[in-house]
Amino acid sequence: MKPRITLLLGDRNGIGPELAAKLLADDSVYEKAEIEVMGDPAVLAEGLAVIGSNANQNRYRVTEFLPVDGIQTTRAKETAEAGAEMLACLSHAAKRVAAGEADGVVFAPLNKQAMHMGGLVHDDEMRFIANELGYTGAFGELNVLDKLWTTRVTSHVPLKDVAANITSEAVLVSTRFADETLRAAGFEKPRVAVAALNPHAGDGGNFGREEIDIIAPAVEKARAEGLEVEGPYPSDTVFVRAQRGQHDAVVTMYHDQGQIAMKLMGFGQGVTVLGGLPVPITTCGHGTGYDIAGQGIATEKAIQNAFAICVDMARSRLAAV
């Protein structure tokens, strides 16, 4: 059975609608999933007009969902109305998967500022969705490029505060989380590498002791739990090893450790997976591209990758039921 994937148009004022249109124009997606576009049909029509194609119109379903009265598209502007629409769509789509009416959600880029203007009180959409689903378990964002997944122990914190937030428990939680999420995406036994914090992995304690005191013990614990985990590895070579296929995932210690390598290896192609939630949800790693919105030049690579990963996750979830 093909998984049923709900496609959301994202921020109607950015490149989301045209990316959705490009995804729908790709014949191959219908072999993998049943696709339903949920949102404002007029916005989908805007996206289709931008790319100048109505291909495959009979192959996907459009489910009208109009949560915000009188909303207009104002390209390249953050608006409270668009923000409210994004939030309502996310909530509705996630709840429908939880209720068994769909199997996964792919959404086009969102605009965080617009969502805050539109009523988002959480730090990000992930916490919002968890709250809407009443989900209290562990969850977190993963970044995926080709076959390489990364997760991070700390994220949006000043660099000077990173080390204070690195605990054995936090490393272990991120490592387990990487393992679980990759299993949920169809990896049988994910090979996880844990990055070091300091240059040269601390050089035997000369440039920091976190590897010895905190990270290595967490790796040992994860291995004792039966996970295929190695590390800590110096962060300047761990991505090279991963790129060569030696690891499926890298647990990074801070935001830029993973993001520098991932964006260098495939700028604009990365995928963000909202891991841990009871609902498969993925999106593009890039933003709403206001500077190029409406021109039809935005590349669909990331949303295609996000779709493919969501299909894998939805399949695994269906198989597990």
Binding site: P199, S235, D236, F239, D256, I260, A261, L264, M265, F267
Partner: peptide, 25 residues
Amino acid sequence: HAEARARYDAALCMYHDQALIPIKT
């Protein structure tokens, strides 16, 4: 990434791995 690198001749980085991750990659 390649497009960004075309804008400069050298990047002045704040810490070791900020410089070493990109060049090794």
